[in-house]
């Protein structure tokens, strides 16, 4: 008797809930023009393609509107371990020269599929200042898995001093701190180009189509710059995909657990609601 009413409520609640999301989406679209070169490289994968963990992901899956088909998108999306490891390599060899990742611990790298020994080995390649020791002196030691990722600069001012006054942002939350973060970061990395007429770059400034402005980051990636051990193409686009996958993990390390839990929770609630609906029908039947 009331299902009609209920549908109305559900739809209205949904639309209320969805409206700000739609607004945000619309807003984000404005400052996110499609990079032309992205469009050219677009190659729609066959439907339902999910990248195999052992294989290279379908790396050209950029849709025409600038949305990239990520391995971690969707309700069942997960991180591609191979891409995460390659992304870590790109971060360490390229991005880490200027960008910190200070909210991530080396121990977190076990999520990427490394064992304890490998993580210790990665951490030990960095030095941290510790102390004071018993003599009251600060000292240098090799980083441990329990240390945060070592930042390239001792502080923000030091970072600005060598980057023309611009502060390279910390990347720990970068994919959450931008509208459509993963697509945005991918767009920035792949859409450097000549400035439009009338725009003259200052010293150390580069035009970026994704940002639609001059930015203080030089195009960071070149084809063949980072050597991969697997047979994935060593291109700017592939590097960008991999490092975005890695940064998405860094920003949201519990995503897989969250989605797995969510599916269980929603199944439980749906069954419970169904049962309660049956009980409700039975109880109300006495009245009619």
């Amino acid at each position: 008797m009331n299902s009609r009413h209920f549908l109305l409520i559900a739809v209205s609640a949904l639309s209320i809930a969805a409206s700000p999301a739609a607004v945000f989406a619309a807003e984000a679209k404005q400052d996110m023009p499609t990079p032309a070169d992205l469009e050219a490289a677009a190659e729609i994968p066959p439907e339902g393609t999910v990248a195999d963990e052992a294989h290279a992901p379908d790396h050209h899956a950029a849709a025409p509107h600038g949305h990239v088909d990520w391995h971690f998108s969707g309700m069942f999306g997960s991180y591609d371990r191979a891409a995460l490891q390659r992304g870590l390599k790109v971060y360490r060899e390229v991005c880490a020269a200027c960008h910190s990742l200070k909210r991530v611990y080396y121990r977190n790298l076990e999520d990427l599929g490394y064992d304890e020994g490998q993580v210790k080995n990665i951490a030990s390649q960095y030095n941290v200042t510790d102390g004071p020791n018993d003599e009251g002196e600060m000292f240098e030691r090799a980083a441990l898995p329990s240390d945060h990722f070592v930042s390239p600069y001792p502080n923000d001012n030091a970072a600005k001093a060598v980057n023309n006054g611009a502060l390279p942002p910390d990347l720990s939350l970068i994919t959450k701190a931008r509208h459509h973060g993963p697509d945005h970061v991918f767009g920035v990395l792949t859409s450097f180009g000549p400035p439009p007429e009338g725009v003259t770059p200052g010293q150390g400034q580069y035009w970026n189509n994704q940002m639609q402005s001059l930015i203080s980051m030089a195009p960071p990636l070149q084809d063949g710059q980072v050597v991969y051990e697997d047979d994935v193409p060593q291109t700017v686009e592939q590097y960008s995909r991999d490092v975005v996958e890695f940064l998405a993990w860094a920003a949201d390390p519990y995503m897989e657990e969250r989605k797995r839990t969510g599916i269980k929770v929603i199944i439980f609630l749906a069954v419970f609601a169904g049962l309660m609906y049956a009980v409700k029908r039975r109880i109300w039947a006495k009245l009619h």
């Binding site: 209920f6 809930a17 999301a21 929603i266 749906a270 609601a273």
Partner: peptide, 24 residues
Amino acid sequence: FGTLVYLILFCFFVFFMPDALGHP
């Protein structure tokens, strides 16, 4: 029953699009 249906919608946001209603 009504609350459970509402919680399903709520949990959909919590688990699958937790940042959609916030600002980046």
